[in-house]
């Protein structure tokens, strides 16, 4: 780990940016807000926080040229954490209130959680808001010190369907609806749940993320 790394939180103008700020600030890091691509501040790692309507978040990122900022940082293999809608925008497109293009870092779609089971019977309330467990689908050192009994906090109506299943690092089950709850690659961790709202389990993810910078 770098000595006191600088972490930039990308300001989507919709997120719970301060909650993420405080979770990161528990550790020995310096945290900065990135509100436009004109922010020439040098950063060692990037976080794109959650909360927000997919189309609106994309339009705000474009307006501030932050879409290109994120793409550029990822091309340089910067350690990056993406949360909730922050994870969803990494994909090709979303169907949240219409059809919207994402950053297309990963191929795949963002679709709505089905309210009904295969017989068309109501099976679950959408959005899903609450705590759930995650099932690890591959070895991922962002999940060090965590196990299948830990709870994480979710609040979402949409979920990602990656084309390349190898990037999926965990799945979760909402009343028999199994979906991708996180993805990871070398420098990227993206979670559908909110680690900053998941008590001690979530804070461990921030700790692991910072350790890898």
């Amino acid at each position: 780990m770098k000595n006191k790394p600088i972490i930039g939180i990308v300001d989507t103008e919709t997120s719970n940016i301060k909650s993420v700020f405080h979770a990161l600030s528990l550790y020995d890091v310096e945290v900065k807000y990135i509100s436009s691509s004109k922010n020439y501040e040098k950063i060692d790692a990037m976080v794109v926080p959650g909360i927000g309507n997919f189309g609106y978040v994309m339009s705000k990122l474009k307006q501030n040229n932050l879409d290109n900022y994120i793409i550029e940082k990822l091309s340089k293999k910067m350690p990056s954490l993406f949360i909730c809608v922050g994870m969803q925008i990494l994909f090709s497109k979303s169907y949240e209130f219409g059809e919207h293009k994402g950053l297309n870092i990963f191929e795949g779609e963002v679709n709505k959680i089905s309210e009904t089971d295969l017989d068309g019977k109501k099976a679950r309330n959408v959005p899903f808001i609450g705590w759930n467990k995650i099932k690890f689908t591959k070895n991922c050192n962002y999940f060090e010190d965590l196990d299948i009994n830990n709870f994480f906090y979710f609040t979402h109506s949409y979920y990602v369907q990656p084309k390349d299943k190898r990037i999926i690092s965990s799945t979760s089950d909402y009343n028999d609806f199994e979906y991708c709850s996180s993805i990871s690659s070398n420098n990227i961790l993206a979670t559908q749940f909110h680690p900053e709202k998941s008590g001690e389990s979530g804070l461990k993810i921030y700790k692991n993320f910072i350790k890898k910078i």
């Binding site: 719970n16 940016i17 301060k18 909650s19 405080h22 979770a23 609040t155 909110h194 008590g199 001690e200």
Partner: peptide, 30 residues
């Protein structure tokens, strides 16, 4: 929000988007 890491919601007197924006910027999640 410096010490409590679960979802925090705030209600009462929220009349416009600016008020909601302010809350989300200081540690509110809903």
């Amino acid at each position: 929000s410096k010490k409590v890491f679960v979802n925090v919601s705030v209600g009462g007197g929220i009349q416009n988007v600016e008020h909601a924006d302010k809350l989300l910027r200081i540690g509110v999640d809903k």
